[in-house]
Design a protein around this nucleic acid. Structure first.
Lengths: 201, 201
DNA sequence: ATGGTTCTGGACCGCACGGTCAACATATGC
DNA sequence: GCATATGTTGACCGTGCGGTCCAGAACCAT
């Protein structure tokens, strides 16, 4: 009944994510988005609305993916909860010195810093995502406690919030390009402090 | 021998700090800066150079002040090291729900998120500031260990990096407007995990 | 008072911004 | 194959951007 779209919406969103992720919201121009997505202004506006709306779509998608990825990683069937928690922190450390040049921090962290104070939608998405992460961590802590890898007398919720803070802090330190050893220390100390039994299960 | 300046440089820098702090670098226009500082473009450029240079001045000043404030607070003569560490975390929690509306996060955190990946000067300043904070924390941890408030077998440096990560993480959660209880949990769990003896000394 | 020197204010510049729109292309339903 | 409906393209718009510049103001030394 009408002309169909020539582009794949998911593909375009992925490109836009990349662009916003690299430059931030304010520093990304419509021309940048046109260049990276390959779409004209008209198509961009017709499909997603203005820059702000497109960004929100991008951020929502990123948060959904991030939460899903974490859920998959943490709630996965393989290995023990303790090992999965440890692996999560290891990955965070590895991200600090991954590949080359200045490491690119989490889009959510950058967006929250840039926009949460002035944009209620961004703030709400950030809160919801952090809350989800906290829930996942709490479940994993409880699982580790059941397995005897974390002392049973610890408050699981409080511990989860502690781990969440350390993770977000590591992210912030990564943004600044801090030495990997600092991240390593923070991760090791956090896991030890939580009472996680050292090494192989 | 020549016309003196009509404005107080420190006062202008304070105004500019306020403006960049509220809006971020990219979202602050020269007109904004002219409005908040009261200076004309000519004066602004004559005294500080372009927007980028002014921002660097502002950030450097902010970091110096922050480090000095922390040094004063942490190395102060009053009370015990343990109490001073605890107070530091309490203040971080209090900042989350201070006054009204969305809390304004640390300028360094916002700047790092926005610019560190693309601006080496900002990244360097962030690294240096975080390293300074880590040093201060380490000294305080050692002092607390000497006083018997933190177990002597803990690695002071690793513990300091852990506390640094928690502090920066709390900052990130504050940016998002997370509930104070989350911050409270993170702070309590961190201090407990560090082995800091509970409450009054 | 005068000359030398710096500071100030704002007019001005070229540019790129976010956003709109109308002419045209391309699909479907009949 | 024509009517209809949507997608696409890029020219176009007004605005505000960061930055320059210069005419005049203000001060000091003499």
């Amino acid at each position: 009944m009408a002309r169909p779209r020539k582009f794949d919406e998911q593909q375009v969103l992925r490109s836009a994510t990349e662009t916003f992720w690299t430059s931030g919201f304010a520093a990304t121009s419509l021309d940048d988005l046109m260049r990276t997505t390959g779409l004209g202004k008209g198509s961009l506006y017709g499909a997603f609305g203005d820059k702000q709306a497109l960004f929100q779509r991008v951020l929502d998608g990123y948060c959904a993916d991030a939460a899903a990825g974490l859920r998959e990683r943490l709630s996965g069937p393989e290995s023990s909860s303790a090992a999965r928690i440890r692996t999560l922190f290891d990955m965070m450390v590895a991200a600090a010195s991954g590949s080359s040049g200045p490491p690119r921090a989490c889009l959510l962290a950058k967006s929250t810093a840039e926009l949460a104070a002035t944009n209620a939608d961004v703030a709400a998405r950030a809160q919801q995502t952090f809350a989800t992460i906290a829930d996942l961590l709490q479940a994993e802590v409880e699982s580790a406690q059941a397995a005897g890898d974390i002392p049973a007398d610890r408050n699981a919720r409080r511990t989860a919030h502690h781990l969440l803070a350390v993770l977000r802090g590591m992210e912030a330190l990564t943004e600044a390009g801090m030495d990997e050893s600092v991240l390593r220390d923070a991760a090791d100390a956090a896991l030890m402090a939580v009472g996680l039994r050292p090494e192989g299960q």
